[in-house]
Every structure is written in C-alpha cells, then in structure tokens.
Amino acid sequence: MNIDPFLAWLESTTLSQWVVGSPSMFAFPGILTLHAIGMGFAVGISAALDLRILGVAPNVPLRELRRFLPILWAGFWLNAVSGLLLLIGYPTKALTNPVFYLKLTLIAVAMTLLVRISRQVFDDSATVTAITSKLRNLAIASLVCWAGAITAGRLLAYTYHRLTQLH
C-alpha cells in the first residue's frame, strides 16, 4: 500500500506546517519539551512502582502508590497528544521508519503491563498484598519495555530514511 499521497496531504495541512515551520518556541521546540517532561512523569512513576514491587522503599504501602497513578496518566496523555503533534509535523520521517513502530509497540506493551500490575495491586478486590514472583516478572518486563521505548525514541533522530515527501 502506497501511503505517500496521504503523507503528502498531511504535510500540506496548516497544523503540520505550523508544528514544523513556525518560528515560535511554542511550536516544535515547545512540543518536544512537553514530550520530555511527560516522559519523565509517566515513565518515572511507572518505574518507581516497578522498583517498589522489586523491593525498593519496602515501607511504602504498595496500595497507596495508586494515588500517583493520575499523574502518571496525565504524563501519558500529555505524551500521546504531543507525540501526535510531532507525528503530524513529520509523518514521513516517523511512518517510514521501522524503529517508530518498535517504539509504539514497546509503549503499548509497557502500558498493558502497567494496567495488569495496577489490577493486581490497586483494585479493591485485590486482597492479596503479597508480592508474587509473577508480579515481580511484570515489574521487570515493565522496566525493560520503558528502557527500550526510550532508546527507540531517541534513535528516531538517527535512523530515519526520509524526512518529508520533498526530502
């Protein structure tokens, strides 16, 4: 399937051209900055939860960490929106690079792991507070996925084949 006409249309939209072409620091540079801040809170809090499961800060009541979940999800949605804007800005750069799909897959797996971990430790029906080896494995997998997603994301700047339809 040839998606080039779609990419060319996307790049011709006002929004795409604002993201990429505006001299304002609130355009591309600002969106990129929000993407890094959102990452810090989303991945950071998820990693803190994983570390707690793996035995760090053992006196923190595991269930109480659920209070931090809204901030984690705020970081996630900030990155979903800022990431979408970056994608609209450079659709060819991202969508023609396999590393981009690897990044998205790793994020999807990491978020699925987060939901599974949350169900086990935060749900009202979750009476089991003991940390099982299965829960530990989920936490380790979560940390590995986040590390992979961040690395893949960083590599996007170095591995793209085409920047835009014109270049």
């Binding site: 810090g40 990693a47 931090f68």
Partner: peptide, 21 residues
Amino acid sequence: WPLAESLHFLGLCLLIGAVGS
C-alpha cells in the same frame, strides 16, 4: 552519541520518578 543520549533520558526518568514522586 545516541546511546549516551538514551542513557541521559533514562537517567531523567529515574530522577523524576524518585525525586519528583
């Protein structure tokens, strides 16, 4: 360089995850 950058971002997440929390 890309590898060092990736580590720099991972370090950022640890810092925010621990100190920010």
